[in-house]
Amino acid sequence: MTALPQNTKTKLGLVIDLDICVGCHACSVNCKEWNTSGYHAPMTDTAPYGADPTGVWFNRVHAYEIQRPAGESQTVYFPKSCLHCEDAPCVTVCPTGASYKREEDGIVLVNEDLCIGCKLCSWACPYGAREYDSSEGVMKKCTLCIDKIYNENLPEESRQPACVSTCPANARHFGDLGDPDSDVSKMVKSRGGYDLMPEQNTKPVNKYLPPRTRQMGPNSITSKAKLEDASPDGGFLGWLDKVLSD
């Protein structure tokens, strides 16, 4: 059913730390690697080796430059995937029941066998989390790696979404955001984790941690403290210092 559950037992999701992300795209690539043989296999590419390659990806890393009102600008890498919203608009618009939100863990999924490929769910999602597979004729999306996080054939430390396992900078964290005592919830609380597009009222489960405030002042590598005279006694070195200082 495409009715949303009143409450989910857990709220599994991601916490993405924008202070740490280095924009290496490893999460996107490992997501593709795992999922192209997983629940939504294949993650089709059309003309993957041509001049204009396109294909289905569940994870995209944007890069933004923020210009402060005063001072230097800052670069922020911004990975974006499905936020597994509590009020997921993509689920309720589905006419067939292919889209659903699981009551046990809050993960939003598509049942490909029921999907008619009308694309309406991708229109309803404000975040662009869903991508249509034109060769399969169905909608595909992030599954939070349900075939990995519950997989008892894997060692326990590997039971995390592919994007989290692979992140070399530890910018992505996975856990139960419905449990206030979980590591991810504590992280959100202490760092001021926030929702994307709060005005859309989708209540995303995934949270983003803002970049930390940059240190300004004499210890900052960007501040230009005046350097001492190289050779206050004059002479050849004093002359050289004077010439180079002009």
Binding site: W57, R60, Y132
Partner: peptide, 25 residues
């Protein structure tokens, strides 16, 4: 600014797109 949640820091501009060619979105 609301989409990225970064508006409180300053004016947000696209530096680099996440993919080289147009995607489904």
């Amino acid at each position: 600014e609301t989409a990225t949640g970064l508006g409180s820091i300053g004016k947000v501009n696209v530096l680099e797109k996440p993919h080289t060619s147009e995607n489904y979105l």
